[in-house]
């Protein structure tokens, strides 16, 4: 199955060949969860903020069905 992935912040630095305009289509084994996707993308866990699937925030144990839009964000700080 495939999901389309967009990376935010400076995360694209960790994924060679990532194109900000088109994003990325990633092939995953059936039933893979978000954690597996992040691992496959090669994003270090320490760099991960949160992940949304089709506009909703999810945990890394969230199982993917294929066809979703996945957005990956960094840890933030603000004020």
């Amino acid at each position: 199955m495939n999901v389309s992935v967009k990376l935010f912040g400076t995360l694209p630095r960790h994924v060679p060949g990532y194109d900000a305009r088109s994003g990325l289509v990633v092939a995953l084994p059936e039933g893979a969860d978000v954690g597996r996707l992040i691992e496959q993308l090669g994003i270090p866990a320490s760099r991960l903020g949160m992940v949304s699937v089709d506009g909703k925030l999810v945990k890394s144990s969230h199982r993917l069905q294929g066809g979703e839009r996945v957005h990956v964000f960094q840890r933030i700080f603000g004020g």
Binding site: G9, T10, S52, L57, H71, F73, I76
Partner: peptide
Amino acid sequence: ELGSAVLVAPINAAG
């Protein structure tokens, strides 16, 4: 690289 504007996408994602 992005300034505080980096917050737009994640805060929007958080609703």
